[in-house]
Structure formats: structure tokens, C-alpha cells
Design a binder for these strands. Structure first.
Lengths: 146, 146
DNA sequence: GACATATAGTTAGTTATGCAACTATTTCAA
DNA sequence: TTGAAATAGTTGCATAACTAACTATATGTC
């Protein structure tokens, strides 16, 4: 049994360590090589805004799985780089709507292309079924811990 | 095709976002609830030292997939908490051998038990075959990006 | 033996994360 | 309608990550 226990411990490192880190580093490197000055965390926020512009900060928290302070500070940096702008909502004065600037819109195609290219590099030799299973397992894990 | 591209982008978020973060947070919470004052990053260093004590810092970098400054500072904090001690190597004066203290040895069983318990919570409803596939995919991803 | 190169580790600066405590606004119920 | 509770967002503090530049020691070649 203790052998089995160690295997679970190692699975923890698998889920949380090497592969995620490797993918993140490679994507960051590919951004840098392309002359793009954004972090992958900033990119993941932009990614959701490209799908739907004008989200509230809370909605960005939900979609990126981050807490509120993290989003506050990511947006501070994105605003410094003039990639987003906080617009106070007229309906509810507690809410900021986060809107893309023109220069952020220009980044969309290039960076998504780089992300796809990075995932292609990462997934060489991995079948579609296996990818589907990984997605399902991760969804279950997330739901289990909600 | 552009539909397919977006799916790859989403796979990126899957691998790098929700599940890993959720597992990490839960394990940290379980440590805290058990009155343990270590971070999961510190734990992951101890984990490799429990398997083999007296590793060099470089070897810890390789095994934990971290860079050298990260290990330097993790060890600084672990030394402050009197969980490890850097011992200069006699063979090669550039090298520090990182050794566990007695109190670090006492943490092993308890924390590995908590990690296993956390993985059990996370993996409810996930079959053994699926877990095996996730491990294989992650290994391939890591090898692809090496 | 001497000098270029490689390796081990540290330091400094920027970004990001988690938690806790805080302000401001809205909602809802007595 | 007033006052408690919920919600949106910010700030402060600690830890951790990456890059780049640095020191010290070891290696290997002329």
C-alpha cells in the first residue's frame, strides 16, 4: 500500500509540476522571441476578453480561476501597458467593466497563433482521444475541489 | 480550422490553469488545517530530500523543475525554519549538499499522508486507466519541450 | 602553468499568487 | 426606512517565479 501511496504523491507532482511549468515557460519564450512584451498571465486575461469584451473583474476571476487581488494587479499592469481600460458600469457603481484597447485587439491573432504553435510542439505524439481524456480528468478534478 | 485552433488554446488553459491551481490550493489548505506552516513549494523540495537526502542544489533544480534562484530562495526559507541545512561539499567547494534536519524528517509521514488524501479528494470518480493516460500525456509533453 | 570556458550558487529587479483586512455600493428584511 | 449582510474591488504583507548579471571554483587545452 505504501508503494501505492507514493505513486499518488508523484501524480501530484505530475499534475502540478513539470508539464504545466514546461508549457508555460515555452509559451513565454515564444512570446519573447516574437518580440511580444506580455506575460502569459496577462495573455490569459486578454484571451477571455477577446472572446467577450467588457467583462467585470469578478467575471474575469471566474473565467481565469484567479482571486480578486490577482486580477486587480494583472489589470493594473495591463492598464499601464495600455492594453485594457477599466470603465465604471452605469448600472452598478461597484463594478468595473474591463475593455480592450485597439492595440490589444491587434495582439489577438499573433498571440493565439503562437499559443497554438506552442501546444502543437507540446502535443507531438499525443492522440486526440488522450487529449480528450486529459480534459475530462482535469474538469473532474476541478469540480471535485470546488 | 479556427474552431480547432481555439480548442487548442483552451487546452492550454486546462493544462496550466484550473486543475493545477485547484489542487495546489487544496493541498495548501489541508496543510494549514493540520497546523503545518510550510508551503507546497517547500514541501516539494522536502519530498525529494526524503527520497534522497544530501542532494546538491543543482540536483534539486533538476528534480523539482525549478531554476537556480528559485531553489536558492526556497532553501533560504527552509533554513530559516530549520528544516534543512546547507553543508559545503568536501569534494567540490562550489557545491552545497542540502541535508534534512530532524524536524524535517518528522514531517514526512504526516505531509505525504495529507498529499495522498488531497489527491484522493481530487480524483474521486476518475479511473485508474485515465490517471495512467494523464501521466503518459504529461510525460510526453515534458519530453517534447525539453 | 595560464587562460578560456563551464559549472554551482547568489543577488537584484519585475511580475504573479495567496490570504486577510479594508472601502464602497447594493440588496434584502425587520 | 434603516440597518445587516452580501458583493465588487483595492491594499498590504509574505512567498515564489523568471531573467540577467554577478562571484567563486573547477576543468581542459595550449
Amino acid at each position: 500500500m505504501s508503494n501505492n501511496q507514493f505513486k499518488r504523491g508523484e501524480l501530484y507532482s505530475v499534475i502540478n509540476g513539470m508539464a504545466s511549468t514546461a508549457v508555460a515557460r515555452r509559451l513565454q519564450k515564444n512570446f519573447r522571441l516574437a518580440g511580444l512584451e506580455i506575460t502569459i498571465e496577462q495573455w490569459s486575461v486578454l484571451y477571455h476578453l477577446w472572446k467577450q469584451d467588457g467583462l467585470s473583474q469578478q467575471e474575469l476571476c471566474n473565467r481565469t480561476f484567479r482571486d480578486k487581488p490577482s486580477i486587480t494587479r494583472l489589470l493594473d499592469n495591463l492598464e499601464k501597458q495600455k492594453l485594457v481600460k477599466r470603465m465604471p458600469s452605469k448600472d452598478d457603481r461597484r463594478i468595473n467593466l474591463v475593455c480592450l484597447t485597439e492595440s490589444a485587439k491587434l495582439l489577438q491573432d499573433k498571440t493565439i497563433e503562437l499559443a497554438n504553435q506552442t501546444m502543437d510542439e507540446a502535443l507531438i505524439g499525443v492522440g486526440k482521444n488522450e487529449i480528450e481524456i486529459v480534459k475530462q480528468v482535469f474538469q473532474k478534478v476541478y469540480d471535485n475541489l470546488l
